[in-house]
Amino acid sequence: MRSERHVFLTVMTAAMLVFSLTPLVLVSVFSVNASRFYAFPITGLTLQWYSDLLSDDRIWSSLLSSVLIAVGVSAISTCMGTAFAFVVVRGTGRFWRTASVLGFIPLAVPVLVLAAALQVAFVEIGLPLGYGTVIIGHTIFATPFVVLMVVAQLFRYDWRLDAAARDLGASAVETFRHVTLPILMPSIRSGAILGFLLSFNEWAIAFFTGRGFNTLPMLVYSMQRNGLPPSVLAYSSLIVIFVLAAVLLLLPFVLRMLVRGAAQETT
């Protein structure tokens, strides 16, 4: 399939990478710039902002809160979202088709309003605000995204595979575990990552439905009020580099898993 005509595609992909990475490369450049301000010229090199970052306990404790919440949200919304994706694709009849559409409505609600509405709901139901309520709130926010991620692949799913497995004597559960799930794994995995990232970066719901702790976005937004401190730039470059390094170097088996997943899909 390779031919000289793929020059266009290669160039576009390279351009996309430049587009994606330039802002972050710049962030890491400014994170070692002596000037506190996010603009040229580069006035000198310093590691001051990194040492500020390491000594700022608040960033680390809020990072922990954010990660805890995001992991919970990712797990719950992936399970619920994957299940619901089957309803969207396989549900027949007016009832299920209507229900499928209704399941996506949270997407159309501005997050800020969703946050305030969620808080009112929690208070009226009598749920005390805390980690639990933020996880519920983020799950409401993130699940439709996960559903869409899985639906995109499920629409093209060849249901004859299920029928074949059943013909060969597999139970419904076995068929799901050994046939359907492995084939859907790439999109479920993407859904889980998406759920994690959406929760990890979300401010409004965390602010309104949490209590007694700050997530990372809450801390960063409040810091931005007085001028984004360079330590936040340092954090941003550090976490991106750290995650990439962790995945690429320390955990080569993740890559192998990804590769194997990719190979499976193409069969």
């Binding site: 990478l17 040229f40 990890f200």
Partner: peptide, 26 residues
Amino acid sequence: ESLILLLVSATFLAGPLVRTVSWRGI
């Protein structure tokens, strides 16, 4: 293939505020 997808996803960890503010520097 995996590396490119990974690079794109990893940029999200910088958070929306930094991702947005960074365009001022450009």
